[in-house]
């Protein structure tokens, strides 16, 4: 009797161990990267790039296929300039909350995931770029002519995601009478926008354009095109990384060659969205200095 219980316990314990060995990060898909991998950046054979998996138009992975989107295209170009073939890239999902940790923990070599350069983040991680300058904007229904900017939102319903400061900013600075709903993701917001329960969705313009450009949403929504903040999307790298200058050079080259423009157009087609010219050529687009 006693032996039986011990063997059952042993079996249970070994089963638990075996199962916990295959945590989400060690299998493909759930997101994350292998820790302590032998390859390091530069000299190794593969490069681990953190992107979003659920942001259509920027970083989106359909099924088990290759990810697509503007972030992905820029990442591929930069990786190519750094000497990696496309097949050498290992894509790793880095949700917003995990980005600093993933870099600090050495789980990824670079991050291209709508990663705004801020002073607070720069204390923990390094940045190259920016490769794009976005601004907070509004997504509205195609036939909407009333909402032309954040000031027009008084008495309207606005959707944003939980934990984002963008919706609160509108309430505080532009339209006090706006009705806010916070949801788990932008996909929910877009569903509400389509059904008419909300009148606008707010976040960075290029994210909105990416959402509106999916085949299912094509022709239904438009980006207002009146950006009222500045978000400089940088390439996240480990603090003190020596790759910063090489990444900056690659971004400059991509813009000069026209590949940047091409990637942008391809990923935001049919949404009437054009990136803010003044922002993307102005002082905000100036590359960070790589002197660490």
């Amino acid at each position: 009797m006693r032996k039986k219980y011990i063997s059952v316990a042993a079996l249970a314990a070994s089963a638990a161990l075996a199962l916990s060995a295959c945590s989400p990060s060690s299998t493909d898909g759930g997101g994350g990267g292998e820790t302590g991998g032998g390859e390091t950046q530069g000299g190794g054979e593969t490069v681990r790039i953190g992107i979003k998996f659920d942001q259509p138009g920027l970083g989106f992975r359909e099924g088990s296929g290759d990810p697509t989107g503007f972030d992905v295209d820029v990442a591929k170009y930069v990786a190519g300039e750094l000497g990696y073939a496309e097949g050498d890239i290992e894509w790793i999902q880095t949700p917003s909350a995990n980005r600093e940790n993933a870099l600090e923990g050495g789980e990824v070599d670079m991050i291209f995931a709508t990663y705004s350069i801020t002073d607070e983040r720069a204390e923990r991680v390094g940045f190259a770029g920016p490769y794009f300058v976005a601004g907070q904007d509004l997504l509205v229904r195609q036939d909407d002519t009333e909402i032309t900017g954040p000031e027009a939102l008084n008495g309207k319903n606005l959707c944003s995601v939980t934990g984002s400061t963008s919706a609160q900013r509108i309430k505080d600075e532009y339209a006090e009478g706006v009705n806010l709903v916070e949801q788990g993701g932008y996909a929910e917001c877009v569903t509400y926008l389509e059904s008419g329960q909300v009148d606008a969705v707010t976040t960075d313009d290029i994210i909105l354009a990416g959402l509106a450009a999916t085949p299912e949403n094509a022709g239904k929504f438009k980006v207002v095109g009146n950006a009222f903040t500045t978000e400089r999307y940088g390439v996240g790298i480990p603090k003190g990384s020596d790759q910063c200058q090489a990444i900056n050079d690659a971004i400059t080259k991509m813009k000069d060659e026209g590949a940047w423009e091409e990637a942008l157009t391809a990923n935001t087609e049919g949404t009437g969205y054009t990136p803010d010219e003044t922002l993307n050529n102005g002082p905000d687009a100036e590359l960070v200095s790589c002197e660490a």
């Binding site: 945590s23 940790n101 993933a102």
Partner: peptide
């Protein structure tokens, strides 16, 4: 994610798991 992952014991992506 804030205390255990930085020590390298677990991958930060696994914090939720």
């Amino acid at each position: 994610s804030r205390i255990v992952a930085p020590t390298g014991l677990i991958a930060s992506a696994d914090a939720a798991y």
